[in-house]
């Protein structure tokens, strides 16, 4: 086949040198890439700590990645995100809406659930608890706390708005966490725990 036939080799000095330099540069880049990729992904160690700045320069932002999938231990609790709203001129408070149940109903029996139902609320919750205390106070050293709260607010509103005819003035979110039963876990530990967030006013757009 023609693909196997070698068309022609470069014959001049300059062109052969060019190819040679390309080989050297490529080898160097591939070496750096492999080292950086390994150090970035592997469990933290002496080398990755020593070269943290260089590794991060090489890998972020285009190659950011995280493969700690269900590891070291999988999450072993179920989280239910509930929300309620204060609506209308009388500021009437609605009953709690189980937002997770809405997602689960969507996912149930769907061979290809959408990214929004599968990932949006989970990631919003993770980002929020990473940047806030259990009572919803922003952590002092997290510059993204405001962003995480704003995202959770907006996301919650996309769930509430279709069911609410009146204007939503403020919302409240609570996380009901249930530790899954397992060896060495008492009934008291596996009882649902509720973390109540403060009321957040909704900026009308």
């Amino acid at each position: 086949m023609t693909e196997q036939a070698i068309p022609r080799r470069p014959t001049r000095h300059w062109s052969r040198a060019l190819v040679g330099v390309t080989v050297l540069v490529t080898l160097a880049l591939v070496g750096c890439q492999m080292a950086a990729s390994f150090l970035y992904n592997a469990p933290a160690n002496v080398i990755s700590k020593a070269y943290a700045a260089q590794v991060s320069w090489w890998m972020t932002p285009l190659q950011m990645q995280n493969w700690q999938l269900f590891a070291p231990n999988p999450i072993s609790e179920n989280v239910e995100v509930d929300a309620r709203a204060s609506v209308g001129p009388s500021a009437a408070v609605t009953s709690w809406v189980n937002l997770s149940a809405i997602d689960e109903a969507q996912t149930d029996g769907d061979p290809a659930p959408s990214h929004l139902t599968m990932n949006a609320m989970r990631n919003a919750w993770i980002k929020f608890i990473q940047t806030h205390t259990s009572t919803g106070i922003p952590l002092a050293n997290s510059p993204l706390a405001g962003t995480a709260q704003g995202y959770l607010e907006n996301l919650v509103l996309t769930y509430l708005r279709p069911h609410e005819s009146q204007t939503i003035d403020s919302i409240q979110v609570r996380f009901v966490t249930t530790l899954l039963s397992g060896e060495g876990r008492t009934a008291a530990q596996t009882a649902p725990q509720t973390a109540m967030m403060p009321w957040w006013p909704v900026t009308q757009s």
Binding site: N73, I75, N78, E104, T107, D108, D110, M118
Partner: peptide, 10 residues
Amino acid sequence: FVLRLHWFQP
């Protein structure tokens, strides 16, 4: 544990 997570339960 993984199979009991409501996040991933179609």
